[in-house]
Design a protein around this nucleic acid. Structure first.
Length: 122
DNA sequence: TACGTGACGTTCT
DNA sequence: AAGAACGCCACGT
């Protein structure tokens, strides 16, 4: 059985709307653990084939496709562009325009510390 | 129980 | 500005 954190992450990723993107760190923070960005990546890697997740909508901090060339970079870029997300030649994405901002209701369950961490992403 | 691992992120050179 | 060096964290072995 996966941890509550993992379950939360999966649920969050499933909520990212088409045409929007979120960063690994953002998802981790929303799931309650701002430091577990790597775990989010690990989860996508291992769970994307078990669930039907919009994995392509999760990118690296600063708005960059994090998937290495030859290991999905090309596909992710293609999928995002098909959704209307502008992806630069270098894999850069304008977060200002495309970052997902979850509704506040789900944020009320967080501790003050987590809220503070989250402010960076909202 | 212990250790290695990764689609990360931040800080220091 | 670009790259190296660390720190982090949960999962699989």
């Amino acid at each position: 059985m996966a941890s509550a954190f993992s379950h939360e992450v999966i649920g969050l990723i499933a909520q990212i709307p088409k045409g929007k993107v979120a960063t690994y760190g953002q998802i981790a923070a929303l799931a309650g653990n701002p430091r577990a960005a790597r775990q989010v990546a690990w989860l996508l890697h291992s769970a994307s084939d078990k669930y039907d997740l919009p994995w392509q909508r999760v990118i690296g901090a600063g708005g960059r496709i994090s998937l290495p060339q030859g290991k999905g970079y090309r596909l992710q870029r293609k999928l995002l562009q098909q959704e209307g997300v502008a992806v630069g030649q270098n894999g850069s994405i304008d977060l200002k325009a495309h970052q997902w901002h979850p509704n506040k209701t789900r944020l009320m369950s967080l501790t003050p510390e987590e809220q503070e961490e989250l402010d960076r992403y909202l």
